[in-house]
């Protein structure tokens, strides 16, 4: 094996997600074994435990950041919008797409020296663009909080015992 080019291109999480989903689909790994599981198992192709494990893990990791809402269309539109309006570096656009910042703090973490390069209005505009293409998952956030509360309550129970 020889490494010809270490870093040919950067990939966004979305592209990797799509690629792995395609692999899973081609090999029928995404089929859930249910009642008619016998039928499914017959169709499963290309036994490769390593590839199956890593694609399963990465897909589930990426789905936790709500990557399903991204489509080719809204990702590319968002990139053109961001790149045409702001002098952002390629890597910064990529990170904005990957992490979808919703607040100033998370935007500042991704974009270097954001407070000096952009005014508050401009930063707000970036956030608005992100929000426009990937509307925030308000409902799910609330659900998450509830879960956390539930977890805390459980912990307390344990301590009481």
């Amino acid at each position: 094996m020889k490494i010809e080019l270490e870093r040919e291109k950067l990939l966004s999480n979305f592209e990797v997600y799509q690629h792995l989903k395609q692999i899973q689909k081609d090999n029928n790994w995404d089929l859930k074994t249910n009642k008619d599981g016998k039928k499914d198992r017959k169709v499963r192709k290309a036994f490769n435990p390593d590839l199956e494990a890593i694609s399963r893990d990465i897909v589930s990791y990426l789905e936790k950041s709500n990557i399903q809402e991204q489509t080719e269309e809204n990702v590319s539109n968002c990139i053109t919008d961001l790149a045409s309006k702001f002098p952002l570096e390629k890597i910064e656009v990529l990170q904005v797409i990957n992490s979808k910042p919703r607040s100033f703090v998370s935007l500042y973490a991704v974009v270097e020296e954001c407070d000096q390069r952009f005014s508050e209005e401009q930063s707000q505009e970036i956030l608005d663009i992100v929000n426009q293409y990937f509307p925030s998952e308000q409902g799910e956030e609330e659900e998450g909080e509830e879960e956390e509360e539930g977890a805390v309550a459980e912990n307390e129970d344990v301590e009481m015992e």
Partner: peptide, 10 residues
Amino acid sequence: MFILSRLSDL
């Protein structure tokens, strides 16, 4: 997070 790399192999 992810990159593309080019390899050659037999």
